[in-house]
Amino acid sequence: MNIFADALNWILDPANYAGPGAIPVRALEHLGFTFLTLLLASAIAIPFGFAIGHSGRGRGLAVATSGGLRAIPTLGLLTLVALWIGIGLGAPYVALTVLAIPPILAGAYTGFEAIDRGAIDAARAVGMSEVQILTQVEIPLGLPLLIGGLRSAALQVVATATLAAYVADFGLGRYLFSGLKTRDYAQMLGGSILVILLALALEAVFATLQRIVVPRGVASTRLPVDRARSARPRPGMEPAITKGNP
């Protein structure tokens, strides 16, 4: 219990709440970095994902590319980019955005693929344009899985954004590197615990979001089902069945 106790003491130590390297400051930096990375990755991944899901083409290429991107070690990519553009946040943003793209891309196109083909076909047949199908049918119905992809990406980014501290005075990773290098394991473990807490908080937010965006009518199991007789009684015609199915 020594290390965990030390780490908890470190987290609760008021000295760590003052100054530029304070816990709240680093945590906010870390969170801000995560959100901006998700934004950048979404800007790239979502249009492609929607295009693939809507047209039904290019899925194989997307899967292969995602696999390739996932295989790139983030620290290696970060170092390579930093050698090119220098220290600071540029390289971390590039490397972490690459990390975040595959799950968001998958969330975007699987969200569309999960939609009942009949509904889409009907939408087209009654006269919706392709854009209208996209905005009025596919996006609302595909949103839950897209949020799921964002959730997965958020988790990966918040855990790996500690690497930003490799080349920048930024984020919760500073506690990890500093603690590691100076053998201050309380700091290192404390920093890790903070990252975990942040990750759990994001998970909770996204889980809620994922539930909220399910369109009413799709989460049908929870809505009251009214299977009352639909036909008006017509003269001379005995209803074949009484209550229940029309």
Binding site: A119, R124, G217, V218
Partner: peptide, 20 residues
């Protein structure tokens, strides 16, 4: 698209939009 909006279309399994 304009043509389809002037013709009624009914399919098997209704094809209704589930979120509307």
């Amino acid at each position: 698209v304009k043509l389809r909006r002037s013709i009624g279309y009914v399919m098997q399994n209704s094809g209704l939009l589930p979120h509307r």
